[in-house]
Design a protein around this nucleic acid. Sequence first.
DNA 1: GAAAAACCTAGGGTAAACCCTCAATTTTAA
DNA 2: TTAAAATTGAGGGTTTACCCTAGGTTTTTC
Lengths: 216, 216
Amino acid sequence: MKTKILIADDHSMFADGIASILNEQENLEVIGKCIDGLSVEGFLENNEVDLILLDVNLPGKNGIEVCKDVLKVYPKIHILAISMHNQESYVSEILKNGAKGYILKNTGRDELLQAISSIQNGETFFSKDVTETIMRGLMNERKASNANIKLIPKITRREKEVLKLIVQEHTTQEIADKLYIALKTVESHRSSLLAKLNARNTAGLVRITIENKLLD
Amino acid sequence: MKTKILIADDHSMFADGIASILNEQENLEVIGKCIDGLSVEGFLENNEVDLILLDVNLPGKNGIEVCKDVLKVYPKIHILAISMHNQESYVSEILKNGAKGYILKNTGRDELLQAISSIQNGETFFSKDVTETIMRGLMNERKASNANIKLIPKITRREKEVLKLIVQEHTTQEIADKLYIALKTVESHRSSLLAKLNARNTAGLVRITIENKLLD
DNA sequence: GAAAAACCTAGGGTAAACCCTCAATTTTAA
DNA sequence: TTAAAATTGAGGGTTTACCCTAGGTTTTTC
């Protein structure tokens, strides 16, 4: 009986590549691919899945939320998180939500297969770098223990427009002119964005926006 | 005679996946992988390569520079650019430097194979989205024709330290305290960074830093 | 081993971002 | 259809970022 795998990643080429690797294995079978968070749950309604390879940074609905929601309904599914970012907040957050492992995209084929094998056996698996990151996080003993990822609140249509222009290096005045609204209005939206994204300044706004693909 | 392919991408898992797809084809053969720009030229000295799949955003030395330098020495090699970003500046810049095609990571397996096939036949190939981007760029008829990618000048040790702290949302004053230098000194470094990265403000600094992986 | 370049350091002045409070109108959802 | 959320905008102030200029120091380069 082959392990049925679903790949959730917004880069089709990456998903296809992984699928090719996995399908070479005689005990694994990729039965589906999803390019955003929302379509994962839809796929699960119509297909039986044993394991999900889940990108943490998915557009639409990020991997952390997907993980939480999927496991509520299908607690038997194993989830292996895949990410470009070795950030402690991502790792700890998705593990809290039930993922069985976390590997980075800069690790290779063999480690991927090893991770899947471990998880099939009910174990957990983490990339070496990820393990270090977690340890380092524990060492620092979390001054801001709860201040890791606040799952990002919903960003409104107008806020998104403003955010996009900020990332494109426009000043508040320029944004006001482009959107035909007052300077003060744009400042309001900026404030809301800083609060919602939990950023201290423009730098954080831009970094968080890119890392979480908020403009997709 | 199989086409000998080199894959240059800093995400091993992605490279391995692509390799798996390509090696399934009877006329293709992946003979090497590089995880940064600098090692490409070293590889070419010792191996005969027909085609390079080149990530545009490579750490160390980005794809655009690699493309230029490789073709100087090995003009017969075909280069297919691969990128996450559908940005006109990237596309036009790498094409000027001799790449034969440009595909996005969110396109799938079939398109990848088609692209390679086209390029083998001496044609060019672009993802549909990329074609649109180029066309749109031509329409706007380049007000800032030369202001696309200025290949990013070398960033000094101190600038890199400052840049890292900026991306981490620290203010100029905080950075000055951390580095034990004057506020004004940090501001100077900020100015140099704005100039070198061709950014208008902090937003641009952060975006360009992340997109070009300047902190790796 | 001296000239040239690159780097690090800073000052003064202006522009932009950020903060807090408050409130009217419009849109969305229960 | 009414309560909640979103959009709009104001006053008034503080902090931070950005621009231009420039001297001293290290590092190349010939």
